[in-house]
Amino acid sequence: MNDSGGSRLALLRFLERVQERDLARTRRWIVDEERREAERRVGEERRPPVPEWLIERGLDRSNIVAVHTGECWDPGKRVKTATRAQAIEAPRHQVPACTKCRPDRALGIEV
Rank of each mutant, 00 (worst) to 15 (best):
R41Q: 09
S4R: 08
R13C: 11
G43C: 01
V31S: 12
A82G: 03
L9M: 12
G5M: 10
V18D: 09
I64Q: 10
L12F: 10
T99H: 13
R27V: 07
R40C: 03
I88W: 05
G6P: 13
D104K: 00
L23T: 11
I64F: 07
H68G: 03
E52G: 05
T83M: 00
P91K: 07
L54H: 03
R36S: 07
V111M: 09
E33H: 08
F14K: 11
A97Y: 01
V65Q: 14
E71P: 04
N2S: 13
R78L: 12
N2E: 12
F14C: 08
C98M: 03
F14T: 10
N2Q: 13
T83K: 05
F14V: 09
A10E: 10
C98F: 12
L54A: 01
H68F: 00
L12Y: 05
R8H: 10
Q19T: 12
I55T: 01
L11V: 08
I109Q: 10
R35A: 12
I55Q: 01
E16Q: 15
E16C: 14
K100L: 15
C72F: 04
T99L: 12
V111F: 13
R46S: 08
E45N: 06
K80W: 04
E89M: 08
T81A: 13
K77Y: 09
